[in-house]
Write a protein that binds this DNA or RNA. Sequence first.
DNA 1: TAAAGCAG
Length: 759
Amino acid sequence: MEDAVAGMPERETKPAAGDLEVLEGVIERTVFHAPESRWTVLRAKVAGEVALVTLVGRSAGIEDGADFSAHGRWAVHATHGRQFAFEALKLRRPTTAAQIAARLRTYPGIKEVMAERIVKRFGTDTLDVLDREPRRLLEVTGLGDKTLASITEHHEQRQGPVVELENRLLELEVSPRLADALNQRYHDQAMAMLEHHPYRLARDVRGIGFQTADKIARALGVDLESNERVDAGLLHTLEKAQSDGHCALPPAQLLDDARKILRLPAPLLDAGIDRLINEGELIPRLRPPGSEPDELYFLRRFDEAEDNLVASLLELACTPREPWEVGELPEHLSPGQRRAVEAIASSGVAILTGGPGTGKSTVVANVIEVAKRAGAALLLAAPTGRAAKRLEQTTGESASTVHRLLEVRPDTGEFSYCANNPLPDGLVVIDESSMLDLELAEALITALTVNNRLLLVGDADQLPSVGPGNVLRDLIRAAEAGASSPIPVVRLDTIFRQQEGSTIVGNAYRVLHGQPLAPDEASRGSAGEFFFLRASDAERTHAKIVEMAAERIPSAFGFDRVSEIQVLCPMHKGQAGTEAFNRALQQAYTGEREGLDAPGPRGEGGRTFRLGDRVMQIRNDYERNVFNGDIGVVTRIVANAGMLTVNYDGHFATYGRNELGALRLAYAISIHKSQGSEFPAVLIPMLTEHHVMLRRNLLYTAITRARRLCVIVGDLRAIERAVRQADAALRWTGLAERTLALLEASAEAGVGVQALELD
DNA sequence: TAAAGCAG
């Protein structure tokens, strides 16, 4: 996105290596103009050329008869012959009153008389008036609102400041689409900002990041060692660290990463860090004594988010409140489950964590009963649509995504419910809270008041959130470390669901505790449930998994190969990735059947869904009641109508050909996508070529998806590597430390946390 | 160096 140069002329016309030239002349006529792509073909009179010259390139529309100057190269087109491919086309601004009047006559609704009157009123400033204060045209007698509207529209489209910006961006070899954003942000200062403060753009304008700003600056010849560039590069480094889940960086890592981006010596970067700290853009935070590293640098945004989250959470947790009457709980609840229900009945905040099958939903169901008896309203939510739907199904109460609970505004990304407009009173239950990132958790928790209670439910050992932060793990760590923590944490580890003694669960626990796997002996045959098959490379892994899925597992264990067997991959690409498995298994299972082609992105096509295929929905669809991650089977295809029906566990959804982008083949899916689902039989390729993905919680998540059979195929070294990579420390955050610090401070002061000022 | 959530 940031580097979007889509639409640059060189994509359409490969210039025959001509030199960059400037061509000037007069437009004779427009041969072709596509308004949305702005692809334009013009014929023009040029001094020194006998015949009319063909000009091609991207431009806003241009009037016939206009003076132009174009930067570009001569090229020879296979069918259209010699032409001038321009990179930038500028209308030369008319300078004399007569030229301006001539230009105005080409505007819709302006005839000769009106053009004269306008020029008489504003003289050679006319075009500037049109650019900056078009309403002044109303000063001209006989010119009303309607004409004004059509003039300004036409002017902006063909001639206004946006077009000038577009042309300048084209010259700088950056996407002209950014012109609108620039104009909206800076108005008549836009050109000046672009020319003189390109790095400001990265901070101010959505859609412009450091890379684009840097490109502009280089084209402008800005000093590569300038303070502006250094500061922008440092901030960009911290922004980028987000995508690896970090809320902050250790100083050494910030320096290291920034040096790779800026390619400047360390002293310059150190000076930049000092500047940013002085400006308050970068916040250094000391970590507890003995920590390595002893300091983290936060972007202001994340520093504030962590502070706000902790302050609101502890206010919620420390405010004394009337306990709910728990009453008689069902006999079958384990001691842990009872403790969990009692915890939230007497606290403002409680955390419930445990692996799959440990009975979290039973606790939630009982908590809801207790809350209802106490007359509390219910606000149930989860970070994903699918988890919300599941929560709804298991509780029988309505639930939504956290985004919908807070009423996100899609244009701004802001939430209607916030500290100034808090959520209604009642019990808030968040399921799958391991998927809460820092900013969503902050938004949620700051939108609560002391009239809410919050129960966070989740498996802290699963994959961390997409966004930055490790919220659930951090909060658990802080709550468990504080001697008299006001936030009770209940860990469920008793296995229900007839899994006691299961080697799948046993091995999942081994992974969690960093121990080597203990697979079943293959000789025990169908009695076992957890196997490892050695395969030396991706080809052999691929072949083994296909054979296991298509033949051996169905025949030896009786599983249905389409509906009960799931291949789970660390990655999409490669022979041991989801794409290769989906191609092979589709070919094997439904290759001969009738299918429906999904129009692929940009016509590259090639995705076909066939009758009987296992498919997954990949975005939330509230109309069809199908959610991101739902898996079903294609049960009906009407090829001539372009219709396809999927059976999602008894719920049917029909798609038109143009809606097939919401579907993907699902014989194999990524481990990330499998989070929150379980399957009777699971096949997992694990190879050293997956090394970038190999983490303890990735392997744990994959194994715990299996209910009755789990087979890992690949390289033992890859498994060992995954087991060794414990993830917790790989995300830099300060949430746990801040929570602990605030708890200690309040204990020392002997007051409730709400009375403490945060610095 | 790869994977992934939400919203209309």
